[in-house]
Amino acid sequence: MNQVHLNEEQLQDYAITGITDPSVVQHLTGCARCQVQVKAYQTLYSYIREAKTPILDFKAEELIPDRLPAINKEDSKEAWYLYGFLFGAIGLLTAGAVVFWGSIRWIFTGIVPWAIIIGFVLFSGLLMVQLMELYNTYRKKLRALNME
C-alpha cells in the first residue's frame, strides 16, 4: 500500500465523483485516516445538498414596481424589417417572373440549363442558411428564457 496519504484534492474529487485511479482506491481500502477524510467530505456534501433553501420573509412579487420600465423593441424590430424586406423582395421577384414570363423569357435564352440549376441551388442554399440561423437564434433565446 502507498504509505503517503491522499492529498486534499484527491480526497475532494473522490468524495464528489467516486471516480479515481486504482492506486487511490488501494490506499483508501487500507488507510483509516483517509477513509475518515473522505467520509467527512461526503457527509459535508450531503449536508449542503439537504440544507433547507432559505425563504424570503416577504412576498417577492410585491416588489414588482407599478410601472414597469418599457423595453426598447427597436433591435428586434430592425431584424424583422430586414427579414420582411428579404422575403418580400424574393416574393415580388418570383411573382413578377411568373406574370411576365413571356416578356422576360429572352433573358434566359442562350443560358445552358445547368447554369440555371447551379444558380437556383446556390440561391436556395443561401436562403436555407439564413433560415437556419434565424431558427438557431430563436432556439438560443428560448433556452436562455428557460430558467428552470
Partner: peptide
C-alpha cells in the same frame, strides 16, 4: 415586458 405584470411575476 412593457407593462406586462404577468411576465414580471413569472420572472420573480
Amino acid at each position: 415586458m412593457d407593462g406586462d405584470r404577468h411576465a414580471a411575476t413569472l420572472l420573480v
